[in-house]
Design a protein around this nucleic acid. Structure first.
Lengths: 225, 225
DNA sequence: GCAAAAGTGTTGAGATTACACCCATGC
DNA sequence: GCATGGGTGTAATCTCAACACTTTTGC
């Protein structure tokens, strides 16, 4: 985020990170937004972020920001794009390196900070008006995520440790915005060897589902769909 | 590139662009490197680049740098990745936004500048020792390019206006590092509709080849191979 | 007429899609 | 026993890979 910047001298270029933090819950794909106090964006929403420290790598700045806002670490985090237009921030020259993160929806406590009015989850298909060039960033992040889940196993970072195939399929459907055939989905993900059955069954009102876990919770390139 | 930076004060983060400029010629994939004068990298090679100006967008800085080194404009240029480790430049904190460009091999005059010993083309599979973290950047750029040519029509920017299918196939083979079947290649690219026959034939010692041109010389996502 | 590159079609295998019925549990 | 979601197989289509011979030109 860039709204922390004060007036700058000429020749002073700041570097910030912006975080697009995705989760899937309630059958929708959501991102975290904060509501800004700072003029001229008072009341507008934006992706969380902040300036990088002098002695901190950009990757670490992104991890720190993620930890601050959500408390989570060790989730999938990928650099998205660097936005560097001159006029993107009215307070001065700020180059923003954006990252997207995928976190499971369980146990997330959003921490409001004094600096903002509010923080919350928003459906990616129904965002409020965004500050800066963040609308462009949102579109870009969604496209990248859609591509990524088709070609890599990164959904491990959106699911709990143990999950049913139906839950996994829901995550794909919500991200891609289309329905998938259950039988084809089962066959496909089983044949890929990226998941393995756990010795657990789902409890619930109906036939209990077999639970699975990922063979490896590390990013891996693989054609999924 | 980052070697122009002088000693910095604390809190002073610089932003630079680095350019990986690809071309295909003599059946090999080549990139431009400059040979540095500045210690501690004296004699080492690096990708060309430079600091961004206060009133110039990062994209424009990349275009400017490309024009300066090669004289070309209006070629395919894509942001690659932003490298932001703290210790990547011994002269101070420099965040580098890398771009890759695809230029046709015809009519390129490399312009040596006083700042460097030399500038030249190098086979990507046989690079000299590189300064900074540029070895990592090179590997990353090659992977991205290989992926890109399979899923987009960007080779238009590596070929002359009119080209034979054999020339086009060579470009793919050199980038991907493997041979392709000529019949399958012909059928595939023709069916995609990204090229159209020109009213020209190649002149040469043997059977003249039909020449083609791209229907559109704009980037377009499409599964090519 | 021969050397060199251009052009073209078919077949088999594997992958993807479409589609419907039975099963296990809670109530 | 019924409502709800879980689990599975097959047939048709499409896509991709493998493969060899004929054509056109310059010399």
């Amino acid at each position: 985020m860039t709204q922390r910047i004060g007036q700058q001298n000429k020749g002073d270029i700041k570097v910030a990170v912006d975080l697009i933090i995705f989760t899937v819950s309630d059958d929708s794909l959501k991102v975290i937004l904060i509501q800004m106090k700072k003029i001229p964006f008072t009341g507008k929403w934006a992706f969380p972020g902040g300036l990088i420290g002098d002695d901190e790598s950009i990757d670490n700045a992104a991890k720190r920001e993620l930890k601050e806002k959500t408390g989570v670490a060790d989730v999938y985090l990928e650099q998205l794009y660097t936005f560097g237009d001159v006029e993107r921030d009215p307070y001065g020259r700020v180059v923003s390196v954006s990252y997207f993160a995928l976190i499971p929806s369980e146990n997330i406590n959003l921490k409001t900070i004094d600096k903002y009015f509010d923080i919350g989850w928003f459906d990616i298909t129904n965002l409020p008006e965004l500050a800066y060039d963040h609308k462009k960033i949102a579109a870009y992040a969604l496209k990248r995520l859609q591509w990524k889940v088709e070609y890599a196993n990164v959904v491990y970072s959106l699911l709990p440790r143990y999950f049913s195939l139906t839950e996994m399929q829901k995550v794909y459907e919500v991200i891609l915005g289309r329905k998938l055939d259950r039988r084809n989905f089962h066959r496909k993900v089983k044949s890929l060897g990226i998941i393995k059955p756990a010795n657990k069954k789902q409890i619930g009102k109906h036939r209990p589902a077999q639970l699975y876990e990922f063979s490896s919770r590390k990013p891996r390139i693989i054609a999924v769909l």
